[in-house]
Amino acid sequence: MATLTTPAPEAQVKDVRRRRRPSLGKIAGWAVLISLIVVTIFPFYWMLRTALSTNAALFTDTSSLGPVGFSWEGFRRALGLATVEESLADGGSGASLNLVQNLINSVIVATTVTVVQTLASAMAAYAFTRLQWRGRDTLFKIFIVGLMVPLIFTLIPNFVLMRELGLIDTLAGIALPTLFISPFAVFFLRQFFMGISVEIEEAAQIDGAGRLRRMFQVILPQAAPALITLAIITYIAAWNDYLWPLMVSNSESSRVLTVALGVFRSQATDGTMDWAGLMAATLIAALPMLLLFLVFAKRIVNNIGFNGIK
């Protein structure tokens, strides 16, 4: 058997060399990849490590890799559970942070925007793909042009509009500009709806299903993957938005998490930064997105590409 299957000596040598040569490159490749992964993850770990430390210990021990002077006080301060005296004693600025309220505000804004915007976009996409009406292509072209306007340009005029509507410092004012419209979402869903076959919808129509029913019970279930992906992207964007809520809100009642973090940071002058409290707060702000990602990672990762998710 050995004589039959063993290749000629020269061939064997060649084979070994060929296998060994890329393996060196492979080691280098893995080294680069692993260092990139470490650099990517480390700040998240550092957030946690700092949040679980006390400010006093952070000043004296800057390089221990684990939490120093282990304590939950950072989280208690961030959630507004600590009194001002406790906060000052622990090296906090004494500034109050009421992340629970901010968290609720963020959830309300992000959820409302995601649900309404996805629904409105799906309806529009349905009309653009499945209904035949005069002006359809013209209106769609206007949507495409809308896609080209940088959202940042609309902020100042939209602020003026919210002021005129008396919606400054309200959650409604924060949600409204993106509530019904994302040209991108309409465009993205339209592309997806175009790929759904007409036959099933035709069968549903023969069974007497009206347009709304056809959209909800025939098209949307088939478009579920695209809808979920879009909803996740919308939720993340709404959750992380900073400049617009910063413009609109000017009191605790309408403050979302990102703005609250910015305010908390600016309350401290550089020498007296409450790092433990601040890192606890950033962790609380980031956690919902990280959990969302944990659940949907595979879907998100596989959906990022040139099919239009941006």
Binding site: F44, L257, L261, A285, L290, A297, I300, V301
Partner: peptide
Amino acid sequence: VFVRSVMLTPFLVSNVVVGLVWLW
């Protein structure tokens, strides 16, 4: 997919969080 997911993590948190962590 795990490696790709890990590398995508910073993209999911807000610029505010990113800024504060690196400030620290």
